[in-house]
C-alpha cells in the first residue's frame, strides 16, 4: 500500500477519513475474510440445528461477534446449560480477547483519540480482524488508523451477518447430505484454525485434551461438560507448559 504524505490531505479531513474507512472496507475482502465467511456458513447451519431462530442467530452474530465465543454459546445451549453456566463458559473462552485488545490499542490510537471511539471499535476485535489490523495498520497514517479499523471491522461484521441470514434460510431446504456437510464445517474449521493459531506447544496439548474431554464430560456432567473440559484441559496444558519450561532452563 502506498504511504501518502500525511499533511497533503489535512485541508479536507472528512474526505480523508472516508478514504481510509473505505480502504479498511476493501482490506476485509481478503483470503482470511473468505475463510471467516466459510466458517460463518457453517455456524448458520449449526445455530439452526440447535433450535435458534433466524433473528436470534443474526442478533448473536452481531452482538457477540467472536466465532469461538458463539460456538461455545451454541454448544452450551445444545447441552442444556443454565444461564450462569453458559455465561461462565463463554466468558472463559473470551478472556483471550482482552490481551488482543491490549496489543491493538497502542497501534490504533494517537494522543487525541477519544476513549469512546476505542471502546466502540474494540467490539470488532476477533481473530480475523485483529490479524488483518496488526498486519496492515503500520501502513496507515496514525491519525487515520481508527477510521481504517472501523471500515475493516464493521464490514466483516455486517457481511457475515448477511451470510448467516442467507445460509440460515437456505439450510432448511437442503437435502440431508448437503445438510450433513454444512454441519461438518464448524468442527473442521476449528480443528485446523485452532491448531494453526496456537502460539506454543501447550496450545496443541490443550486442543487435544479438549477434544477428548468434551465428549467424556458430555456423558459424565451434562450441562457442565464445556466448563469441566475447558478448565481441566486448560490447566493441564498450562502445567505441561510450566514443566517443559523448567526442563529447558
Amino acid at each position: 500500500m502506498p504511504m501518502p504524505n500525511d499533511t497533503a490531505f489535512l485541508s479536507d479531513p472528512v474526505l480523508h477519513r472516508r478514504t481510509w474507512y473505505l480502504r479498511g472496507v476493501r482490506a476485509s475482502f481478503s483470503i482470511p475474510g473468505l475463510i471467516l465467511a466459510s466458517a460463518f456458513v457453517g455456524f448458520a447451519g449449526l445455530a439452526r440445528e440447535a433450535g435458534l431462530t433466524l433473528a436470534e442467530t443474526v442478533f448473536m452474530t452481531g452482538v457477540v461477534w467472536a466465532l469461538p465465543a458463539k460456538v461455545v454459546l451454541v454448544g452450551a445451549i445444545l447441552s442444556g446449560a443454565s444461564l450462569p453456566a453458559a455465561a461462565f463458559a463463554v466468558a472463559l473462552s473470551s478472556v483471550r480477547l482482552m490481551p488482543m485488545v491490549v496489543a491493538l490499542v497502542p497501534e490504533m490510537r494517537n494522543e487525541r483519540t477519544p476513549k469512546w471511539v476505542l471502546y466502540l471499535l474494540s467490539h470488532f476485535v476477533a481473530v480475523t480482524s485483529w490479524v488483518l489490523a496488526m498486519e496492515n495498520l503500520r501502513h496507515v497514517p496514525r491519525s487515520m488508523r481508527t477510521s481504517y479499523y472501523a471500515g475493516l471491522g464493521s464490514t466483516l461484521v455486517v457481511v457475515n451477518m448477511v451470510v448467516v441470514g442467507i445460509v440460515f434460510q437456505i439450510a432448511g431446504a437442503l437435502p440431508p447430505s448437503a445438510s450433513a456437510a454444512l454441519l461438518l464445517l464448524t468442527p473442521i474449521y476449528f480443528l485446523t484454525s485452532l491448531w494453526g493459531s496456537a502460539r506454543e506447544r501447550a496450545g496443541h496439548v490443550a486442543m487435544i485434551l479438549g477434544l477428548f474431554l468434551g465428549p467424556v464430560f458430555h456423558v459424565l456432567l451434562p450441562g457442565f461438560d464445556l466448563l469441566a473440559a475447558g478448565l481441566i484441559g486448560g490447566f493441564a496444558a498450562y502445567g505441561f507448559h510450566r514443566l517443559r519450561r523448567r526442563k529447558t532452563q
Binding site: 460456538v71 468442527p187 496450545g203 496439548v205 479438549g210 474431554l213 465428549p215 473440559a229 486448560g234 496444558a237
Partner: peptide
C-alpha cells in the same frame, strides 16, 4: 489461551461425537 483452546476444542469434540441434525 490454553483454557480458551480447550473449551472450544471440547465443543468441537462434542459436535463430532454427538452431532445433531443430518
Amino acid at each position: 489461551r490454553t483454557v480458551a483452546t480447550a473449551l472450544v476444542a471440547a465443543v468441537i469434540g462434542n459436535l463430532i461425537v454427538f452431532p445433531s441434525g443430518a
